[in-house]
Simulated assay, not measured.
Amino acid sequence: MDFLLITGMSGAGKSLALNYFEDRGYFCVDNLPPALISKFAELCLQSDLDKIALVSDIRGREFFTELFEELAKIEDMNLNYNILFLEASDDVLIRRYKESRRRHPLDEEGRILDAIERERKMLEELRGRATKIIDTGELKSSELQEELNQLFLGEEDKNLLHLSLISFGFKYGIPRDADLVMDVRFLPNPYYVESLREQTGNDQEVQNYVLKWPLTDKFYSKFFDLIDFLLPEYKKEGKSHLSIAIGCTGGKHRSVTTVNKLAEFLKDKDFNINIEHRDIEK
């Protein structure tokens, strides 16, 4: 069994890493309290699951002190496990928290730096036991995925073309690392339907609206056919990673729907696919 514990600094990209493993067939659990890890491992051993990834970190608060005891119990089960530790510099973590406007789990008085320093000290021993450590400070999401590919994929998988499918809103700028960019602002816009405005392209009602138009059907046929032609050619030229960015005005409806449908179209082909809806929450 492949049992992976993902941990590290808050804001360092653990959720992105978990999404990566979920896309690759792992059974994934986020924010599992450390006190439950050994029980969870027992259930996994009794199942037919062969690839497990879980995130456990200081969000577990008082339970976090039990982590090493739980890891010892796993070792007693003769269950091999790996620890992936994600980190970034203080400046990067502060910037990410300010951009997201989220509160650090240890921030009780509005002092982000103090919370980061306390967390770093709490995780010091765990970092020392980590199997693999990644500093995500200078990594874009596609670069983090490539780093994970190098660390966790077998040689056969490393030879696959890795695709990043990114939805975005033009009002927030084009992704700088995109290899191909497609503008879908010409498609009928669900934003102007009041009942759909607050939904996204992950919701079936929005997808139904975007897909019901003959224009959409004709465009998808031509666009997907073009992508189907291009990808093998990029692979022949030795490209290992390709980023395809699809944009609409706000990045919530048409672009999200199109990325999801393109992923469905490509899912049974010989590619590793990562989906990112960059602006869906804006």
Rank of each mutant, 00 (worst) to 15 (best):
G11I: 03
P33D: 08
N19G: 13
L266C: 10
R24F: 05
G25P: 05
M1W: 09
L165C: 06
E62K: 13
S100N: 10
P33F: 09
L32D: 01
K239L: 14
Q207T: 06
I116L: 15
E124P: 03
I280E: 09
D225W: 13
G60H: 03
S164I: 03
A41E: 12
L16F: 09
F64L: 12
C248I: 12
D157K: 10
S10P: 15
V92Y: 04
C28Y: 02
F224C: 04
R103E: 02
A178D: 09
L86C: 10
A35L: 14
R24E: 10
L93R: 13
N202K: 01
S240H: 11
L262V: 01
E62F: 14
L231M: 07
E205Y: 01
E109R: 06
L215W: 07
L151H: 05
N274V: 03
S243V: 15
Y172T: 10
E146K: 09
S89N: 14
I58C: 07
C28M: 04
Y172D: 13
L4Q: 11
L148Y: 10
Y20E: 07
T257A: 06
R127W: 08
L67T: 12
S167G: 11
N19Y: 14
D157C: 00
R185G: 13
M122L: 15
S47Y: 12
A88R: 09
E125I: 08
D217Y: 13
F229M: 12
V55D: 02
K282N: 11
A41T: 13
S167R: 06
G13F: 03
L123F: 11
R111W: 07
K212N: 14
V259M: 08
T258Q: 01
K132G: 01
I134T: 03
L49I: 15
G201T: 11
K14V: 06
G173S: 04
Y81N: 07
S89G: 15
R61S: 12
F63E: 02
E147F: 05
F271Y: 15
G13M: 06
E233H: 15
S243A: 14
A88S: 14
M9C: 04
G251T: 07
E108L: 09
S167I: 11
S221I: 03
A41V: 12
L93H: 11
A17R: 09
S240M: 07
I94W: 15
G60Q: 01
G11C: 06
E125L: 11
F224T: 07
E276T: 14
L113E: 10
G247Q: 08
A72I: 08
